[in-house]
Amino acid sequence: MTTETERSDQALIVGYLGGDEGAFSVLYERYKRQLYRYVNDLLPGQRSEADEVFQRAWLKAIDSLPRYRDQGCFLAWLLRIARNVFLDRVRAERRRPQPERFDPEEEGASEPVAPSGSEPWRELDERELARVLDRVLAELPSEQREVFVLRQEELSFKEIARIQQCSINTVLGRMQYALKNLRRKLSAIDAGGLIK
């Protein structure tokens, strides 16, 4: 007999819709922290706004569960909902994001880059590195940041393209520029650099 934690996402959804009280809480516990990290990456430094988007995303997901079709990745579906909630919020506040232009020159290609093979950030301990990475990620353009964090959530490039509603080629380009920018920023790490 499978325990609650072993039940598949689809089985939990069917259970919840059938009246099983505990099924949704298992599903929620399974994905809440990943969604929370994603939403905070979309809104770096805006904790209360991120909380609001997080809550609304879950409520919308709960209302949409009867229409959920098991297409392989519940997390991708959930992240797509959260992104739409985030975009609705942006539109409602009448902020229009600037269109991305992937001009290599504009991405700071002229700035000096550490020689290949040198990765000073490797010397940091894990906790410090996580803090630095969070900070550096917040400085990336939003679309590049989103591609990076979604890839960290183990989503395929195809799923990321579906979430961002663009082509796979665009997603791949964004990822490459994100890595380039991350390397450039992390290469500036030294005793008097990003580490405070």
Binding site: Y28, Y36, L59
Partner: peptide, 21 residues
């Protein structure tokens, strides 16, 4: 370079689980 997953505030947990119920 796994960034640790953040903890979700308990108040958010409570509200969402209540809404689901």
């Amino acid at each position: 370079l796994r960034r640790p997953l953040p903890e979700v505030p308990a108040e958010l947990d409570r509200r969402i689980l209540l809404a689901a119920a």
